[in-house]
Design a protein around this nucleic acid. Structure first.
Lengths: 186, 186
DNA sequence: GCGAATTCTTACCATTTGGTAAGTAAGTTG
DNA sequence: CAACTTACTTACCAAATGGTAAGAATTCGC
């Protein structure tokens, strides 16, 4: 499962053959097809798993104590941490969203509760005056895009002249945080 | 060429078969292989073309008259316009960056002049005090990511609750502009 | 008008793909 | 021990893939 998640998000769904997955696991392709009736079913299982993990990762940050800017900062930090430490999770979201169709629909359903929670949380903070008023969906989308770009578009990072090493990730996180802070401050 | 660019960026390189491209063009696969020795060569040609178009699109915005914030705003507007009206250009950048390897290297070479121009332009504006000091590479990366996300991740847009219609694109552009403005203001 | 280049097509081909069918070794249950 | 389930494997298969070889129609240079 972890292998499939990793490969789907890194190499893409179409570019990942069942044979390649099986080889990596040291079994035959039919061993996979025994547990998952088809490649599509495997993808659906991987989507469910990734969404579950994603929600688990964010659950703490969204429900932990603290208020105002501290909590916002913790949320963004969490987003960045997930993007750096588990890039396959966000990478799969991107890949599945590109695939469209049933897979994307399933992703949508799986993430709906989290998205609703996050946007309503942003909304509350806006009403409270912690962050400046804007479309909460837009804010979520921007945070996702920013982290996705910085955490998974390694090649683009290299193109714009940033070395995509883990060592410099901390620096990038600090930059992104101050950037988002400036953008969100009331 | 346009058909290949579109399909590579929308469906992905691996998921685009030469037969499918040929069918869409009303010719046979071998007609394509006559002009481009292999699928890889076709990809390289498409990359060159996309980068050329990208640079052409941005050239006006980067070199046009005006100064200070007006020019910055025009640059961001251009980025958004390209993202919305020619999503295949930025989509291909994302796809090729995911593919890695020779293709990504070529992309890097093709875009290097533009990237250097853009970052040095940001640097000048920072020195002039128009925008707040930050890593110019980071700023470029963030703008790219934001526009990529909003312009090409249609499914994710739907998931976070934004209808991905052209009609609402203007609203999103305004939101993004005010967002970037807030983030960049000195 | 004729050879030659250009631009295709038809006919193949080896490999890879997701998927099926059937068998088998190792438990598990009664 | 026997029936049955679990977790595979080996043996295939039809379709699709990128690519080659050779031929045909059209255009071009002279």
């Amino acid at each position: 499962m972890a292998v499939a998640l990793d490969s789907f998000s890194r190499r893409g769904f179409d570019a990942t053959s069942l044979d390649a997955l099986a080889a990596e696991l040291g079994v035959t392709k039919q061993a996979i097809l025994y547990h998952y009736a088809s490649k599509k079913v495997l993808l659906e299982a991987v989507i469910d798993r990734a969404c579950f993990d994603l929600i688990i990762e964010f659950d703490g940050a969204l429900s932990s104590a603290g208020s105002g800017w501290d909590r916002i900062e913790r949320l963004v930090r969490t987003m960045f941490r997930v993007g750096v430490r588990r890039p396959e999770l966000m990478g799969l979201v991107r890949e599945v969203s590109r695939l469209g169709g049933d897979a994307a629909a399933r992703l949508s359903v799986d993430l709906q509760p989290f998205v609703e929670r996050a946007t309503s949380y942003f909304q509350r903070e806006m009403d409270a005056g912690t962050i400046r008023k804007c479309d909460p969906s837009m804010l979520l989308m921007l945070s996702y895009s920013a982290v996705i770009g910085i955490a998974t578009d390694m090649e683009v990072l290299r193109i714009v002249g940033m070395e995509p090493t883990l060592r410099s990730a901390a620096i990038r996180r600090r930059e992104l945080l101050s950037f988002l802070k400036a953008a969100m401050s009331a």
